[in-house]
């Protein structure tokens, strides 16, 4: 098996586990955790892709909420302070990446002529 096939196998395993988590979570877990979900079924179809992608996060939140370990204060601590980091790193990276991309860009070397280095048989 080559590396590409290995990566694809891991993706399939990730999705397979996600499908199992989605099945359990959407058929019985969600009703216990979120009263707004009780009796609401159509929206669960929209939730499936999310569970497939981030099932470890789903399992973690499920564990926290089911065990009553959720700290309410955390819900009200916005991420806005860390946002400043993104707002500053992103411009630097954007400019840097474009500059690098442009600097390695080649133009067709039309002036570089082919050269015969030696005659046949030499």
């Amino acid at each position: 098996m080559n590396q590409a096939e290995l990566i694809l196998l891991l993706v399939k395993i990730w999705g397979g586990v996600g499908a199992c988590v989605a099945l359990g979570f959407l058929t019985f877990g969600i009703d216990r955790l979120d009263e707004d979900a009780r009796g609401a079924y159509v929206f669960r179809l929209l939730i499936i892709p999310g569970v497939l992608l981030i099932w470890p996060l789903v399992l973690w939140r499920w564990y926290v909420l089911a065990g009553g370990k959720d700290l309410w204060a955390r819900r009200y601590q916005p991420r806005r302070n860390s946002h400043r980091v993104f707002a500053l790193i992103m411009p630097v990276l954007i400019v840097g990446i474009i500059a690098v991309g442009w600097s390695v860009r080649q133009t067709w070397p039309v002036d570089v002529a082919p050269v015969q280095l030696s005659e046949p048989g030499q």
Partner: peptide
């Protein structure tokens, strides 16, 4: 979906 906001918490 808004479900995720409530489930994961806004932060």
């Amino acid at each position: 979906h808004d479900f995720w906001l409530k489930f994961l918490t806004p932060p």
